[in-house]
Structures are given as structure tokens and as C-alpha cells.
Amino acid sequence: MQIFVKTATGKTITLEVEPSDTIENVKAKIQDKEGIPPDQQRLAFAGKQLEDGRTLSDYNIQKESTLHLALR
């Protein structure tokens, strides 16, 4: 499925993911596309910060959802 990640600079990244993917996997995909190390990424959805060990389906993130990326 496709999801979107909006960066602090307003850029939107499109990612191909599975509901079973962990947040860690998603951060690795962002690193592949943007070169941002996962340990510098903070992802949020619906106002909640997402934890590495959880999956997209844990957070009820569905196709075409938009996550927000902040850098630490």
C-alpha cells in the first residue's frame, strides 16, 4: 500500500509499505529515499509519536495515510 510522509520542510515522500511493516522498517525506507538516518527520525500520526517496534497496523495506519516526520 502507499503512504505519504510529510517532512518538516513541507516535502511529501511517497512510500510503498505493508500494514505489517514496523515503524523501524518505514524509517529505513525513508533513509533509502532521503538519506536521513533512522535514529534522527521521529514519526507521528494523528498526533501520536510512533514507536520503532510497533507496526503500521498497530496504529491503524491505512493506505494513503500521511505520517509526519520530524528530525531530532
Rank of each mutant, 00 (worst) to 15 (best):
M1G: 03
M1F: 14
M1L: 06
Q2A: 13
Q2M: 10
I3M: 04
I3V: 07
I3N: 00
F4Y: 07
F4P: 01
K6T: 12
K6Q: 14
K6H: 14
K6G: 04
T7L: 14
T7W: 09
A8V: 10
G10E: 09
G10Y: 05
K11P: 07
T12Y: 06
I13T: 04
T14R: 11
T14G: 06
T14A: 08
T14I: 09
L15T: 02
L15I: 12
L15A: 02
L15D: 00
E16V: 10
E16L: 14
E16C: 04
V17G: 02
V17K: 00
E18P: 04
E18D: 14
E18F: 14
E18I: 10
E18G: 09
P19V: 09
P19Q: 07
S20Y: 12
D21M: 13
D21L: 06
D21H: 08
D21Y: 14
T22C: 04
T22E: 04
T22Q: 06
E24K: 12
N25E: 10
N25L: 11
V26Q: 00
V26Y: 00
K27D: 00
A28T: 10
K29S: 06
I30C: 02
Q31F: 14
Q31P: 01
K33E: 13
K33N: 06
K33S: 12
G35I: 02
G35H: 06
G35Y: 04
I36Q: 03
P37K: 09
P37Q: 08
P37N: 11
D39L: 13
D39M: 12
D39P: 07
D39V: 14
D39C: 05
Q40W: 11
R42K: 13
R42F: 10
R42P: 02
L43P: 01
A44E: 15
A44N: 13
F45S: 03
F45R: 03
A46G: 11
A46P: 02
G47Q: 06
G47Y: 05
G47E: 07
K48C: 04
Q49L: 10
Q49W: 15
Q49C: 06
Q49A: 11
Q49R: 10
L50Y: 01
L50F: 02
L50P: 01
E51A: 08
E51T: 08
D52T: 07
D52Y: 05
D52R: 04
D52N: 15
G53V: 10
G53C: 04
R54G: 06
R54L: 12
T55I: 07
T55F: 06
L56P: 01
L56R: 00
S57L: 14
S57N: 11
D58F: 12
D58I: 03
D58C: 03
Y59S: 03
Y59E: 04
Y59V: 02
Y59P: 00
Y59W: 03
Y59A: 03
N60K: 08
N60W: 05
I61H: 00
I61T: 02
I61D: 00
Q62S: 13
Q62P: 10
E64V: 03
E64G: 13
E64D: 13
T66C: 04
L67W: 01
H68A: 08
H68W: 09
H68V: 07
H68F: 09
L69S: 02
L69M: 06
L69I: 05
L69Y: 02
L69D: 01
L69N: 01
A70M: 15
A70L: 08
L71C: 05
R72P: 15
R72T: 14
R72V: 15
